[in-house]
């Protein structure tokens, strides 16, 4: 399996542990990732509010670069994945913005997008039959006894006709993966709720309330930790828990795959977390005390 790889800006900074764990598990599972040369920001939470055109044209450049490589694109970040899918959709369905952006990008970079590409979230790659069959042979540290709340957030689920990774109201792809790793997943009510995204800077009070509700719901569900596949969700849930409250670790699903595969370098990923997940992992004998 070989893919072009779009890490996106967050994975080069606040979510570097998501990038490191994604690359490490893919290598371990024989999935080749080739980073798209000279990729640019997808526009994320800001471009669409300034201009509908910009929100399509920025990710479109990445699609053109990936199409040149002839490899389907894998994206770990839920927001990047969302916007790459939107741009793809706008071009293949021939909307006015899609046509215009594609034509203008043709003039700017000398190539346009033909739509011969699939944009996949890393969860979709991990849930392929081939990978699911390989996993049990590779798992050395099953996450036995750990209870996880799978948290999906917004951008990898909605709107369903564009992103379509899972059922938009009752998703279970992260649950399936967590169970394949040996963990159990809890039933809880905030799987598809919004964490407030980029408002963490401008309206931190709003994000405080939303993240408090989500973490409380996970606790009520009986979870030991939350697991997600979006850098904005992880950052908000991880950074907005109050120091004096009981805190709950927030993992990327790729980090837990790495732990189950027995990767010792995972300790480095967890150093980046604000809520320290090491005590929990040590309690379940998944990592040795360091």
């Amino acid at each position: 399996m070989k893919y072009s790889y779009y890490p996106g800006c967050s994975l080069c900074s606040t979510a570097s542990e998501y990038n490191l764990s994604s690359e490490a598990i893919c290598e371990q599972l024989g999935i080749q990732l080739k980073e798209i040369p000279d990729w640019n920001c997808c526009g994320a939470t800001s471009a669409h509010s300034a201009s509908a055109y910009l929100a399509v044209a920025l990710p479109l450049r990445n699609l053109i670069l990936a199409e040149k490589m002839g490899l389907d694109m894998v994206v770990p970040c839920a927001a990047c994945y969302h916007w790459q899918r939107v741009a793809h959709q706008e071009v293949v369905t021939g909307t006015a913005i899609g046509k215009k952006a594609n034509q203008e990008l043709g003039d700017i970079i000398g190539a346009s997008y033909n739509g011969n590409l699939q944009v996949k979230h890393i969860m979709e790659v991990m849930l392929q039959q081939q990978v699911l069959e390989l996993l049990p042979k590779k798992i050395t540290k099953p996450l036995k006894g750990m209870k996880l709340a799978s948290y999906y957030g917004c951008l990898m689920l909605r709107p369903a006709e564009v992103v379509a990774i899972d059922n938009p109201e009752q998703p279970d792809s992260i649950d399936k993966m967590a169970q394949a790793l040996g963990a159990s997943t809890v039933r809880w009510s905030s799987k598809v709720d919004c964490c407030g995204g980029s408002f963490t800077l401008a309206e931190s009070g709003v994000v405080d309330k939303l993240t408090f509700d989500i973490v409380s719901a996970a606790r009520r569900g009986g979870a030991d930790a939350i697991v997600t596949a979006c850098p904005l969700c992880q950052a908000n849930l991880d950074t907005r828990q109050k120091e004096n409250d009981e805190q709950m670790p927030v993992f990327y699903i790729t980090e837990l795959i790495g732990v189950a595969l027995g990767m010792s370098e995972s300790r480095q990923w967890f150093k980046k977390h604000i809520v320290n997940p090491l005590p929990l992992l040590e309690r379940f004998n998944l990592l040795k005390k360091g």
Partner: peptide, 19 residues
Amino acid sequence: PILYQSFLQSVEKLGRVHE
């Protein structure tokens, strides 16, 4: 809007956002 504008200025200048 200042939040969005600051973000996009970084993208326009660098091609990527520098957090």
